[in-house]
Design a protein around this nucleic acid. Sequence first.
DNA 1: CTGTTAGCGCATTCAG
DNA 2: CTGAATGCGCTAACAG
Lengths: 354, 354
Amino acid sequence: MTAHDHDSPAAVPAGPAPLATVAAAAGVSVPTVSKVLNSRPDVSAATRAKVQAALEAHGHTVRRPVSKPTGLVDIRVVSLESTWSEAVVRGAAESARRHGVDLVITVDPDPDDCGAWVRHALARGTDGAVSVVTVPDAAERQAFADALVPVVVVDPRVRPPEGLLSVGATNWQGGLDATAHLVALGHRRIGTITGDDAQANALARLAGYRTALIQAGIAPDDSLVRRGDFTVDAGYEEAWHLLSLDDRPTAIVASSDDTALGALRAVREAGLRVPDDVSLVGFDDLPIAAWLDPALTTVHQPLVEMGAAAVDLLHRARSGTGHTVRAELATTLVERASTAPPPEVVRGPVRART
Amino acid sequence: MTAHDHDSPAAVPAGPAPLATVAAAAGVSVPTVSKVLNSRPDVSAATRAKVQAALEAHGHTVRRPVSKPTGLVDIRVVSLESTWSEAVVRGAAESARRHGVDLVITVDPDPDDCGAWVRHALARGTDGAVSVVTVPDAAERQAFADALVPVVVVDPRVRPPEGLLSVGATNWQGGLDATAHLVALGHRRIGTITGDDAQANALARLAGYRTALIQAGIAPDDSLVRRGDFTVDAGYEEAWHLLSLDDRPTAIVASSDDTALGALRAVREAGLRVPDDVSLVGFDDLPIAAWLDPALTTVHQPLVEMGAAAVDLLHRARSGTGHTVRAELATTLVERASTAPPPEVVRGPVRART
DNA sequence: CTGTTAGCGCATTCAG
DNA sequence: CTGAATGCGCTAACAG
């Protein structure tokens, strides 16, 4: 290489050529080249192809269409039937309102596949997307990335992949707090009804339960761990299993308020009382928890705040400020009337259901 | 007028002139005239003014911009904190999904003024609007009409003005059914806690209550009618008033499940039992009604269906088919465990609260 | 033949 | 003053 190649006529690729040059090569006007360069829509397919070739030949790279803000943020929930999703939506709606954007809500029952939602939202155009529980797959995340649309998953079912924004609660701490509360009341045999064990939050709560027992010097007993799926019915069924044990527990940690509700019914049908014979702790702190009789001791999840945090995270991602990848919000134990010290004497297993 | 004026050269204003004529008069091309005629955006203000003048001089009238469908439908709720609105939103979401449009949800606490929402939705562009409870004022309705955007009010607070689309439940029938059910059980002294009496549905329920009494030959007694506002607290307070009467009622018709919940608490604090001493009927049939102890007898309002009906109505209004102005959905009495025959002997008023 | 829509380039404006 | 980005009105192709 010579020491003075700055005026060498052979030094062609010293940066991108002027648009006029490209325009001449493609046989179109300069504005048309500019439009293709910026992916504007008002160019025919034929012309666009010609110009693209010419651009690339001259060291240009076609830019992504600079999508103007739509003023819309999408949220997808699996169901609105539970108060759970509803609280998240409410929080998201409040935050959207503060940010001056509108919230587009989609209810789509499939807990695993949000592909249709992703495609639809991107086709319409959106400033950001919140997926509740469902984690988009790699292709879907790429589609969002290509469109420069940020995504946040609230309470992801599975461990969120590296780099995916998410919002959650301190599930491990919550499971620990619930169990430690029972230990402090004097319980030694504490059963639990978990959620779906394919679900990250359920596993975290279970781990918290185990840790609390170990910290108290109680050896975890797998016969006291029943697997449920967060529903009322699972709570009812699995509570019966626990109550039928020869050495039945004096307290039950449920994976959700719904599960606790089912367990409460089972305890009553077994002829036992809450909290005199069996203490019960829920998880979520849905409105119904306060209205149950007895009012349910439960782990409060800040669902409204989680919904709001999701939209806040989108906003910060868009504005380039903020580098939070996961926002984890604190749970708090709410002590009500469904927990008490264990009875002096625990009688044997309840008799089978009629 | 002559019998043959079809070829008379003086018969100038026989309909609008061709666009070519207008174009020549305005000194622009024919497509530009077409754009102005259709209120398309890509015409400068100066040119638009010239062309508009020429158009009007030649018997044309500028058309409203034919807004292409946005694929969005707006819904406004006063709050998402009650399960009530949530059910309506859920129904609307399902129907929107069926129609292939997206639902934009706005939570705006003001129960009377939806002006900000109306302006915002119309500025962005929307295919239809659902207002829950709040009735838009005349100016707002006119703004919708100008933009050719249909509006539906769900369960309007006030009697909806002539021509405004609305969806409601058979509130009068519901109030009648609840009361007649108690009459059939043998109750003669039946109290009621109404909703806000500025609200149309509350008045209809009260009228149904009165009608049922009269049909049963029972003279309505105004001391048994307490005015509430649909809340838990009102139920609690007004139930105390009823229970403190010298000749206290053996049954209470509440204006909502929330009100019934408050009343239930008051009855218990008064040392009485439901339904043994006092029967209780709610209104709405929210999920909590089934989970109360005792499970609440209540008038089911098809809230999900009402939400769906609202979006259906919008769709029919848009497609020009369908001339329904108000969809009124049937309520049904759900008999559970909070109602029973009255006690043989009714003791006097309960003693005052501590 | 009348009216509508797509797509291109002129002229202007904007950024450095 | 140069290179790039738009607003806007034209021609051309199309639809009824």
